[in-house]
């Protein structure tokens, strides 16, 4: 496999505004592939997995690159992992998301890779997906005529598949508000830190004294899409957190997932290791909610 060249020529357009981009998308639909950071798409093009006749680059649209804090958090899809890391409100309050951006591949990929690109790839292993799910992320999708808002759970449809239609593009990611009683954590297991995950998990807990008031758990790379583990969550909600209970939840997470064998791991290993990861991540989120 020659990854030194992009084998197929393609057209390249670089709109300056969201409107221009949407107009172009509506006129060319399936022919166009959107490029943001390019860290996944260009590799796929080099190995011949995709060969779009036209690339629409978002890099000149600065209106897609922002983080705004107002009640919750609103993020432009072109914001890079590195930019997210540098945002104080993320490192302080959205800890699980902060930890996930740090866990993305390498320094170079964190500089190049964008939040929107990570989601629109539709990878079950997308590092940003579990934390966005536990903060009840929503995505805004626009085409030339209208916009719609979906929960992130509705957005992911299957491996490599999202709810995006031809002519549509992701224009914003929104997270719900968190307060000082919210604690969250993210963990990822890969062969080495630069690898895609075998299993990833995020937990957010809202604590009231000794009780777990709210709990959300999301896992990646263990099902066709990044998913919430709702049955596991319900075990913890309203309960006093104890070791035995966390043990029970971790087994439920293992039951709830539907992992497969692939080049990175096996279904059996994923079911086993997710228990330990769930234990650790729940414990960590719980401790953080307290402090």
């Amino acid at each position: 496999m020659n990854t030194h060249i992009l084998p197929q020529p393609f057209e390249y357009v670089e709109p300056q505004t969201i409107d221009e981009a949407l107009q172009y998308l509506s006129e060319h639909k399936e022919k166009v592939k959107i490029i943001a950071g390019g860290t996944d798409l260009l590799v796929q093009m080099k190995i011949g997995k995709v060969s779009p006749p036209c690339l629409l680059s978002l890099s000149k649209i600065s209106a897609l690159r922002y983080v705004i804090e107002e009640s919750g958090l609103r993020m432009g899809p072109l914001t890079t992992f590195r930019e997210l890391q540098m945002t104080p409100s993320i490192s302080k309050r959205y800890t699980a998301l902060f930890e996930a951006t740090k866990a993305v591949s390498t320094a170079q990929i964190q500089t190049m890779g964008t939040l929107g690109g990570n989601l629109c790839n539709g990878s079950p292993a997308a590092d940003s997906a579990p934390p966005l799910l536990v903060f009840r992320g929503k995505v805004k999708l626009m085409d030339a005529r209208e916009e719609r808002i979906l929960s992130l759970e509705e957005f992911f449809i299957g491996p490599g598949k999202t709810a995006l239609k031809a002519g549509e593009m992701l224009t914003e990611i929104e997270l719900e508000e968190v307060n000082e009683r919210t604690g969250s954590a993210f963990k990822k297991l890969g062969r080495v830190s630069a690898d895609l995950s075998k299993v990833s998990i995020a937990v957010a807990i809202v604590r009231k004294d000794d009780l777990c008031k709210e709990c959300r758990i999301a896992v990646g790379a263990v099902a066709p899409v990044p998913m919430r583990a709702r049955k596991s969550e319900s075990i913890l909600i309203g309960k006093k957190i104890e070791r035995s209970l966390i043990e029970k939840v971790s087994h439920q997470v293992s039951q709830e997932i539907s992992p497969i064998d692939d080049i990175r791991s096996t279904a059996w290993y994923r079911r086993e290791v997710v228990k330990a990861m769930a234990r650790e991540t729940i414990q960590l989120a719980w401790e953080r909610a307290a402090s």
Partner: peptide, 19 residues
């Protein structure tokens, strides 16, 4: 192939020249 693009490290192999 790492280079600094506007001061930040990127892989030049995954950056289109036009970008």
């Amino acid at each position: 192939c790492a280079v600094l693009l506007n001061g930040k490290p990127v892989n030049a192999c995954l950056t289109l020249a036009l970008q």
